[in-house]
Computed example of a mutant assay.
Amino acid sequence: MSFKAVIFDLDGTLVNSLDDLAEACNRSLSKFGYPIHPLEAYKKFVGEGAKHLVTQALPPAARKEVEINRLLALFQQDYQTQAAVKTKPYEGVEALLAGLEALGTQKAILSNKPHLLTVQVVGHFLQSYSFHPVFGAREGVLRKPDPAGALEICRAWGLAPDQVLYLGDTAIDMKTATQAGCFPLGAAWGFRPEELNASGARAIVQSPLEVLELVRSGP
Rank of each mutant, 00 (worst) to 15 (best):
L159T: 09
R202D: 02
G218M: 11
V164I: 07
S207V: 08
A5L: 04
W157P: 10
I204T: 13
G186T: 04
F45A: 03
E65Y: 11
P59H: 02
Q179M: 07
P193I: 13
D78W: 08
F191D: 01
L209T: 15
L165W: 08
G200V: 06
L103N: 06
E210K: 13
T178R: 14
Q76A: 07
N26D: 15
R143E: 05
T176H: 01
V66G: 09
A180G: 01
Q77M: 13
S130H: 12
F8Q: 07
H115R: 06
G33W: 01
E152V: 00
L29C: 10
L74G: 00
T118C: 07
Q120N: 04
F45C: 05
G158K: 12
L29Y: 10
S28L: 09
E40F: 04
Q206F: 09
V122A: 09
P59N: 03
D20S: 09
V119L: 14
Q127K: 14
K44F: 12
K51R: 15
K86Y: 13
M1F: 01
L58S: 13
E23T: 11
K144A: 03
P147T: 06
P219N: 02
K31H: 13
E139A: 12
Q106F: 07
H124F: 13
A148V: 14
A24Q: 12
P114M: 00
G136D: 01
N69P: 00
P208R: 08
T13G: 07
V141Q: 10
I172P: 01
A201Y: 01
L165I: 02
A201Q: 02
A160D: 14
V211G: 09
T118R: 08
Q80A: 15
H115P: 02
W189E: 10
P114R: 02
G104L: 01
G99L: 06
V54G: 04
L21V: 14
S111R: 01
V141P: 00
Q206E: 15
K144W: 05
E48Q: 14
T170C: 05
R138K: 15
P59W: 00
F131R: 07
R192I: 08
A24D: 11
E101H: 00
E213V: 11
P59C: 03
R216S: 14
V215T: 10
A201P: 04
L159R: 11
L18E: 08
C182G: 02
A203S: 13
T13D: 06
Q163E: 15
D173R: 06
I7R: 03
G92A: 08
Y34W: 14
I204W: 12
P60M: 05
H124Q: 09
A24I: 05
K107L: 13
I204N: 08
D20H: 06
A24M: 09
V122M: 03
L209M: 11
Y90L: 13
V134N: 03
P147N: 03
F183K: 02
K144S: 05
L72N: 04
K51P: 10
R27C: 11
F8Y: 11
L14V: 08
D11P: 12
F135D: 01
V46R: 05
K31V: 11
E67C: 07
E48F: 05
R216T: 13
